[in-house]
Design a protein around this nucleic acid. Structure first.
Length: 104
DNA sequence: CTGATGACGGTGC
DNA sequence: GGCACCGCCATCA
């Protein structure tokens, strides 16, 4: 699985923190954020990957509300202590994942 | 094998 | 700050 690399990085995201697609792509070594997004799109409900902690550079959920996953994602993050603003965005300056090794 | 598509990012206007 | 275009690579028809 080519996405395994991406999943491994996402699994390293600690609770209460979120990471952007670009962040993941950068850590993995692949600059193509699309791969990260597509990797998550291939996920299923029963997965060990905390996909809810992966958001776009805007700090928002890219998923359309059609699937209802966005709502689930928001609830999961709120349960971890991540706060959403009135725009439904996350403050990356606070909850942004610094990286697997710490402050980058 | 070719073409189109997709949970995006960055840059330019 | 928002919108348009390009690139990037795996997957599907």
């Amino acid at each position: 699985m080519t996405y395994d690399r991406i999943y491994q990085v996402i699994k390293q995201i600690p609770p209460g923190q979120v990471a952007t697609y670009g962040q993941i792509a950068r850590i993995v070594g692949d600059c193509s954020a699309r791969m990260v997004g597509y990797a998550l799109a291939a996920l299923h409900d029963a997965t060990d990957v905390p996909w809810q902690r992966v958001i776009n550079s805007q700090g928002k959920i890219s998923l359309r509300p059609d699937f209802g996953a966005a709502e689930q994602q928001r609830q999961l993050l709120e349960a971890e202590g991540v706060s959403f603003d009135s725009y439904g965005r996350i403050d990356l300056a606070i909850y942004g994942w610094p990286g697997p090794l710490g402050p980058w």
